[in-house]
């Protein structure tokens, strides 16, 4: 287990208006590590996808909260866990296939694909009826302030 240098936790209402708020907060936290512009964009994009998944797929038409737990680990690794207590995913491996979507219409089905593309590792845990937790890590090339 890598040592935690810094961390924060927050939870927000699962409202689409909070998508930009969540990625702004995560961007500010990551900025403590002096990331490159590209690393910062990758983090903001991956977080935006995960938060959107909670709203669109986790809670659907219901209200709920999104729980974010982020840590800067030794070795300049940012670990971000984003969790909902929504409907969960029946088949996680199918949901992670590119272009898979249950939302139809205007969703591209690329949420997990983009998260994978823009982070170094991605773990998805889900229980139908209980919710989904996504944990992603991203190595930052800058220097973290402890």
């Amino acid at each position: 287990m890598k040592k935690v240098i810094n961390d924060f936790k927050m939870n927000v209402a699962a409202k689409s208006v909070n998508e930009s708020f969540c990625r702004a907060v995560m961007g500010a936290f990551a900025a403590l590590c002096d990331p490159t512009v590209e690393e910062l964009s990758d983090i903001r994009t991956a977080v935006s996808e995960a938060v959107t998944n909670c709203i669109v797929h986790g809670y659907r038409e219901q209200t709920g909260r999104i729980y974010i737990d982020a840590a800067l680990l030794e070795g300049n690794v940012l670990r971000i866990k984003i969790r909902d207590k929504g409907c969960g995913i029946e088949d996680v491996s199918a949901a992670m296939e590119p272009l898979f979507t249950t939302a139809g219409g205007e969703r591209s089905g690329l949420g997990f694909t983009v998260m994978e593309s823009f982070s170094d590792s991605l773990k998805v845990r889900s229980k139908p009826g209980k919710g989904t937790a996504v944990t992603l890590t991203k190595k930052i090339t800058g220097k973290c302030d402890g």
Partner: peptide, 13 residues
């Protein structure tokens, strides 16, 4: 200034 996969969905739609 920022786009996630919703931009892809917008184009596909």
């Amino acid at each position: 200034t920022f786009m996630d996969s919703s931009g892809v969905g917008l184009a596909l739609g």
